[in-house]
Design a protein around this nucleic acid. Structure first.
Lengths: 228, 228
DNA sequence: ACAAAAGTGTTTGGAGTACACCCATGG
DNA sequence: CCATGGGTGTACTCCAAACACTTTTGT
């Protein structure tokens, strides 16, 4: 074992599966490739890891290069390592999924970069194994959302409970009962009611809340379970 | 982006975190390295992925080479990709965790290979980031065991309910109530009672059961939840 | 007969689910 | 004044958790 053989060296790529929420639907960020290989096809964003860079740093760099975003919720999904996954050269990809807030700033940035949001049940053909990555990432989000409050990563800093509910309904593709949903969310005791209302979606207006990261971490340390 | 640079090529390793259960404690399989680098240190098993081999095939090959085992429950844990994780050369490792049944055959094999089982809360110093891998894998097992019946992978084909309970107590490091545990396990309806008894641990003898993989898959397809 | 593990039921509290109406406001 | 989305309470069901004694049999 442990025989060093120069032939057995690989390109290592990072591909990012980026999800956003536009207050209605859960969406995937897809890029129109302007350069070869696969020019004019659709793909996720990705790039090779540089030899002097950690895989996670590469992921952060790639996300920033393509979207301008930093401090984004991003986690490793899994490694895609089949021999023939990329016909051009032998390359393994460490896929990462990211959750971002869609606001006007990001909207503009991504459009400039030739990107588009697609609804998750209407994803177009992507290059290589990028469709599989998207499917796997979506499944992972469903799993993770079950016991970690990742939903807040997709919402603006200030959000209303009805929006939060719409988000979870988008993730799980089913409706929740308003009263039960509120009860559950509030019972976690990790969101703080603000004195402002959001009147953009109703005349009455809905109270804005913010996520209490500090309290969340406290509860998490003590083994609390956020199962939705 | 996508600039091919021969310099940016990596060795890709697979390291396997192998857990076993000896009817009492959950244990980790650790190897005494007989070759350089790190000769005479302790480590997990691992090797480089070959250029013509998928990452998952490499994992299967490595496990077989070191333990002789095939058809083992093995899943990807995560990728370890820091720049300085291996001082010798730039190398990323795709760690995999595996669950195996400890029987006499495997006992003999692993001893011949210079391997030893260590109790999970008494793991010695391992090379590189292998201690971190073990910690991460253990945490993952706890998570997965919560909603998938992976426990059966660690037990003999025929097992008793008290043994199954001991296993879960080893994974979660806490005691369960006998009556509630039985009730829960039997309610899943995925184990089949046999006509034999195991009398090795008591005079009365405990009925042996086997896992019903077919039924398990059926239930899984229909979205059943095996939360312990 | 006794030690040691296997096996068995019931009660209780809390959480999930189902369900329908009033509120506030802008137009 | 009415249309629209926001917000609230209760009853029922079911599952998890707590809890103690009997059975079997080798020694």
């Amino acid at each position: 074992m442990d025989i060093y053989n120069e032939k057995d060296k690989f390109y290592v790529a990072v591909d990012c599966i980026i999800f956003g929420f536009d207050n209605q639907k859960l969406k995937l960020l897809v890029f129109d490739r302007r350069i070869d290989p696969f020019k004019d096809s659709l793909s996720l964003i990705g790039s090779f890891v540089k030899i002097g860079e950690s895989v996670s740093d590469a992921a952060i760099r790639i996300l920033k290069d393509f979207t301008g975003l930093e401090n984004v919720y991003m986690k490793e999904l899994k490694t895609y390592g089949s021999v023939d996954r990329d016909p051009g050269y032998r390359c393994i990809s460490v896929a990462q999924y990211a959750l971002i807030r869609i606001d006007n700033a990001i909207k503009k940035i991504v459009e400039e970069k030739g990107a588009r949001w697609y609804e998750i049940d209407n994803i177009p053909n992507l290059i290589l194994d990028h469709n599989q990555m998207s499917i796997d990432a979506l499944k992972r989000i469903e799993e993770v959302a079950r016991y970690k409050p990742i939903g807040f990563e997709l919402l603006p800093k200030k959000f209303t409970i009805p929006k939060l509910q719409t988000l979870y309904e988008a993730i799980y593709r089913r409706k929740f009962d308003t009263r039960n949903f509120r009860k559950k969310i509030l019972s976690f005791d990790v969101i703080i009611k603000l004195d402002e209302k959001d009147r953009t979606t109703s005349k009455k207006g809905a109270y804005l809340y913010k996520f209490d990261y500090k309290r969340y971490r406290e509860l998490q340390e003590s083994g609390y379970n956020f199962e939705i």
